[in-house]
């Protein structure tokens, strides 16, 4: 049985369009496995963060989820011992007043820069910034956890924990 040209073209178009629709649904939202909408809640990745014995924290902060038009707002940064005890922390008032010279944005796009707005450290979606913070303490060599909290009170979203293990060397 031979199909005419129109039928073949129509089937081809049908398969391509339907295929792209389903592929976008699965890849963008895992719609056929575990439905996930990454635009709902802010999430941050801290990969690349460094902590030094003189108390300097080079917080590498990548905003990887949440609304594209707003936030996210970081209101607490903590250095913790591996057992969860807090060694030092910066609160919202401090994070809201970081000098702009201590916030280095990877992508120079106006309206999408990380900055202190007086109330929090603002990190727009997609931006990857290095934020330099100084703890007035000497930190003993060892392993620590650096963790940040979003203004919604969480340090985890979509299974992504907003924290990283860092090692302070001698």
């Amino acid at each position: 049985m031979g199909m005419d040209k129109v039928t073949i073209l129509a089937l081809l178009g049908f398969i391509i369009a339907t295929g792209v629709t389903m592929a976008l649904y699965q890849i963008n939202f895992q719609g056929f496995t575990h439905l996930t909408n990454y635009s709902k809640k802010p999430a941050y990745s801290l990969a690349g963060t460094q902590l030094f014995s003189n108390g300097t924290l080079r917080l590498q902060i990548d905003r990887v989820a949440g609304p594209d038009t707003y936030g996210g707002f970081i209101v607490l940064v903590q250095i913790l011992y591996p057992n969860g005890t807090v060694l030092y922390q910066w609160n919202a008032a401090q994070l809201g007043h970081i000098p702009s010279s201590d916030i280095i944005n990877e992508y120079p796009l106006p309206g999408h820069m990380a900055y202190s707005d007086g109330f929090a450290l603002v990190v727009p979606l997609g931006q990857n910034a290095t934020v330099i913070l100084h703890a007035p303490i000497t930190i003993q060599p060892g392993t620590y956890i650096v963790r940040v909290y979003d203004v919604d009170g969480s340090y985890e979203a979509y299974g992504i924990k907003f924290q990283v293990y860092v090692t302070v060397n001698q």
Binding site: D62, V64, A65, Y107, L109
Partner: peptide
Amino acid sequence: NPHSPAYVGGKLLTFIPHAW
């Protein structure tokens, strides 16, 4: 306008985290 906060270039930045 590349110097405006409204610049659409910023949209491409927001695509990055979960783009294909």
